[in-house]
C-alpha cells in the first residue's frame, strides 16, 4: 500500500468513529464594519503602526507627491509597471526627470543580479486594501511580478481610498476569490519587511523592503 493510501485508510477508519463538523459562526468577523472615514483612519493607523509611511494625496496631484518623495529618498531608479495605469502615469510624469525608469520586462533568470543589487525602488498599484489590519492586497501578475514588491529596498504602493475593505474576510468573499480562481500568488503586505529575532528588537528591511510608502488617493 502506498503511503498515501495507508494514511487515508487510517484516517477513514477512525477508532472512535466518524466525527461531526461543528457550525462555524463567522458573525464575530463579518460584524466588523466601519464607514469610509473610519476605514481610512483605521487603515492608516494600523499600517503606520508597523512602520509604513502613508501620504494622503488627491487623484490629481499624486504624481507631484511621488516626485517629491523620490527626490527626498534619493531614488535613482524606479521599477514601474508597463501596463497598469499607475505605471503608465508614473512613466509619463517622470519622463523628463532624473529618476531612471526600469521595467520588469524579462524573466527573473535574465536579470537576477541586476534586480538584487541595482534597483532602488519600485511602484505598484494594489487590488484592494484592508482597514482592520492595515494591509495591501496584491495579486502579482505579468505586469507587476512577485519580486517587484519584495527585492527593491523601497516599495511605493498606490491605493485608492475606495479600494478599502473592512476585513480580509470581506476581501475574500466580496471579491469572489474562490469563484474567480486563485492566482499563482496572492499576497497581503502590511508594512516593510521586519524581524525581531535578535533579542526582540525590531529591525526593518531584513529580506524585503526597508521602506513601504503608501500613497492613498482620495
Amino acid at each position: 500500500m502506498s503511503a498515501r493510501d495507508a494514511i487515508l485508510n487510517r484516517l477513514r477508519h477512525r477508532r472512535d468513529g466518524a466525527l461531526t463538523a461543528p457550525v462555524s459562526d463567522f458573525a464575530v468577523v463579518t460584524e466588523k464594519q466601519w464607514n469610509e472615514t473610519e476605514k481610512l483612519d483605521l487603515f492608516q493607523q494600523k499600517i503606520e503602526s508597523v512602520h509604513a509611511e502613508v501620504h494622503r494625496v488627491s487623484k490629481e496631484n499624486w504624481l507631484e507627491k511621488l516626485k517629491e518623495l523620490l527626490a527626498e529618498k534619493q531614488v535613482k531608479n524606479l521599477l514601474t509597471p508597463m501596463q497598469a495605469q499607475v505605471g503608465v502615469d508614473t512613466r509619463a510624469a517622470l519622463k523628463e526627470d532624473d529618476v531612471e525608469l526600469l521595467a520588469y520586462d524579462q524573466p527573473i533568470e535574465g536579470w537576477k543580479a541586476e534586480l538584487f543589487s541595482n534597483v532602488d525602488a519600485s511602484i505598484t498599484d494594489v487590488r484592494s486594501a484592508i482597514a482592520e489590519t492595515g494591509s495591501l492586497v496584491l495579486w502579482p501578475d505579468l505586469d507587476q511580478p512577485r519580486l517587484m514588491t519584495l527585492v527593491p529596498p523601497i516599495h511605493f504602493a498606490v491605493v485608492d481610498a475606495d479600494q478599502l475593505k473592512n476585513t480580509f474576510h470581506e476581501v475574500i468573499v466580496s471579491e469572489g476569490w474562490v469563484s474567480e480562481g486563485m492566482p499563482t500568488n496572492a499576497l497581503l503586505i502590511s508594512g516593510p519587511s521586519k524581524t525581531a529575532d535578535i533579542e526582540q528588537t525590531l529591525a526593518y528591511g531584513v529580506h524585503g523592503p526597508k521602506e513601504l510608502v503608501v500613497l492613498v488617493r482620495q
Binding site: 494600523k46 503602526s49 511580478p145 512577485r146 486563485m182 497581503l188 524585503g208
Partner: peptide
C-alpha cells in the same frame, strides 16, 4: 503569537509559474 495585528506578509501560493509569468 507576538501580539501583531497581522504579520508583514501573508503569502498564498496556488501554482507554479504560469506561462508568460516572469518569476516564481
Amino acid at each position: 503569537a507576538t501580539g501583531q495585528h497581522i504579520t508583514t506578509y501573508f503569502n498564498m501560493i496556488s501554482s507554479p509559474r504560469k506561462e508568460g509569468e516572469l518569476d516564481g
